[in-house]
Amino acid sequence: MKEKQTCLQSASAQTAIKRKNPLAQLIDRLYVLFDDKKVRYGVLAVAVAALIYLPINSSMYITEVMTTFWFNVVVCLGLNIIVGFAGLLSLGYAAFFAVGAYTTGILILHYGISFWLTLPVSVVMAIIAGLAIGAPTLKLRSDYLAIVTLGFGEIIRLAARNMEITGRATGLVGISRPSFFGIAMLRIDHFYYSFLVLAILAIFVSYRLQDSRLGRAWKCIREDEDAAEAMGINVVAVRLLAFIIGSVFGALAGSFMAIKMTAISPESFLFTQSVMILLAVVLGGMGKIPGVILGAFVVVIFPEVFRGIGMYRMLIFGVVLLALMIYRPQGLWPERNT
């Protein structure tokens, strides 16, 4: 173990000498520092403590923004499984949290089912939707998925707008909030904590998936599809699994969103929403979990800081996407290729 560590350190030290950029040197040093488990867990513990403490000692506004941030972390990590891990492009991700949100909303509003029981139903619905979209397209060329999901996103919105059960254009209003072991979830900090827990869960699951056999299969397919197939990986099944797992993340986040907002309408699930999540994933670095979290943070904070940009926002997002692909396709915090 010790030998391995010194080996790592010397390797990093060598790269540090090679790089002239002081910022890169600093990052390299940080990497070396974080190789020590004690330091890593120490920093993590401090960070988690700070995040738990945050809503106690800050304004409603900051808590609200941070809640949005945790929500975005969950959906971005979900999309990251599809785009980052498996290398598939999904452009209708908002549709999956629409599926989750509407499932929960309808079950609570029309059937009076407890919120916690609607969660498994929305997972099942997401799996069905994921299969219906993924199965026919992934069997063919994987880039068909992009446009089919784009269409799916639009169709779900149109269907929600035209059906009686989804409340047509007004949507569902007055979804009651649940209680958690006797505590009624009413205040914003309750939602802050629930999204924080959800986000930590998503981070944990993402890491476990990344290091699993499945995660390695995804990476392998992304790098070289033909080689992966030759090694005995069932490309279609593994891709489909990525698509479905990603959809489930989205649906769960959507269910929680439904009770946080208490009202959902077709306009909450626009194409813009899907693009914003994609931008966060691409910006941070596809496939890199801390990178994706960073991307989610930037995408949430940016419109808050630059309030005046209004209608230019999506235009700027488009330019950023294009520039990223041309000049820095690996994102802000890329995966390290060892």
């Binding site: 785009v83 290398g87 598939l88 492009l89 452009l91 994987s142 880039d143 992009a146 693009v275 994609l278 691409v282 596809m286 209608m311 230019y312 999506m314 235009l315 997002f317 488009g318 330019v319 950023v320 996407l321 294009l322 520039a323 990223l324 692909m325 041309i326 396709p329």
Partner: peptide
């Protein structure tokens, strides 16, 4: 991006699309 991965090319196309329709907006 002609030699880049397919995904980069698709995202780049999406970026162009957004630039075009948002400029028009």
């Amino acid at each position: 991006l002609r030699e880049a991965p397919r995904l980069s090319l698709l995202i780049s196309a999406l970026g162009v699309s957004m630039i075009l329709y948002n400029s028009a907006m």
